[in-house]
Design a protein around this nucleic acid. Sequence first.
DNA 1: CGCGTTTGACCTGCGC
DNA 2: GCGCAGGTCAAACGCG
Length: 326
Amino acid sequence: MDEQWMIGQTSLSLSLNVGGPRGPPPVTRDLVEEDFMSSMKNHEVVALEAELRRVGEENRRLSDMLRALVAKYADLQGKVSGMMAAASAANNHHQSSTTSEGGSAASATRKRARSDSLDTAGRNPSPPLAAAGSSGCFAVSVTVGPDQAECTSIHEPCNSKRVRADEAKASRVSKLYVHADPSDLSLVVKDGYQWRKYGQKVTKDNPCPRAYFRCSFAPSCQVKKKVQRSAEDKAVLVATYDGDHNHAQPPKQQGSGSRKSGDAAAVRASPAPVLVQQLQRKQEASTADQVADRKNLVEQMAATLTRDPGFKAALVSALSGRIPVA
DNA sequence: CGCGTTTGACCTGCGC
DNA sequence: GCGCAGGTCAAACGCG
């Protein structure tokens, strides 16, 4: 963060030249009153300058806090990545040793007829889910059930239902944590894809309702997501993705005149989607250069924030609320 | 009128 | 077998 830049911004100067004795003084008939007014304005300027210094200090403090926060975030993300990698490795090892026992046979006993029809749509290799663009979010991707539909017995032909069930299990499950306004009750997570809500349910462990979405961009795409506010922190939306998209990310539609869409609304609310996409692409990179990449990314993030006119405007707005502009 | 959301009912999996 | 909880369906409704 470049606090010098922020302090030097003209939009933050609040026109401090007001009343300054810089030009030739206007000739008035009442010189005494003029001197009085001039001294009053000088006092005003001094007060404003003091206030500006104070705000600058505060700005610097906030910048430091933000820098520390971003650094901690990057550090935590590194730890999470490491833990997920370790857990994934352990999970693979564990399951490779357990699947030979034919363990998950009971789970495939009851299978819904309609899920069969849905599953016939096929599941192509697809771009990773992490192509998200939500505001202030980070993703955790977990591959569930890597034992992809292998027959438990060579002598027994694979049951097609069984295979499909295992395929469904083998689909990727990932979580996306999105910071959202707690006062905003909509369960919308902008991730660049088009979703159609098909249900909402209040779950036992969380008073906040859980919304169910299905990918509506491609009819054959069976990706689903669940969005629910975190029980601990209402400001955090937890989006759980189930499956992989079998299509590319739909292009952004800005002001296309189509009916309102929650995701489209979230596009507008997303302050730095490109950066988050970069961040999540970085998560997929090899772990060797992840640390260096993350540092660069953090720098970019901070730089983009400071360059963002919206951020600037919000800051000006916040500051003007603290400084009475008569 | 078409499409997305809402919401109550229904289905399914699972533990006891 | 029963009950609970999560997940899904589909008719009704709303909006552009």
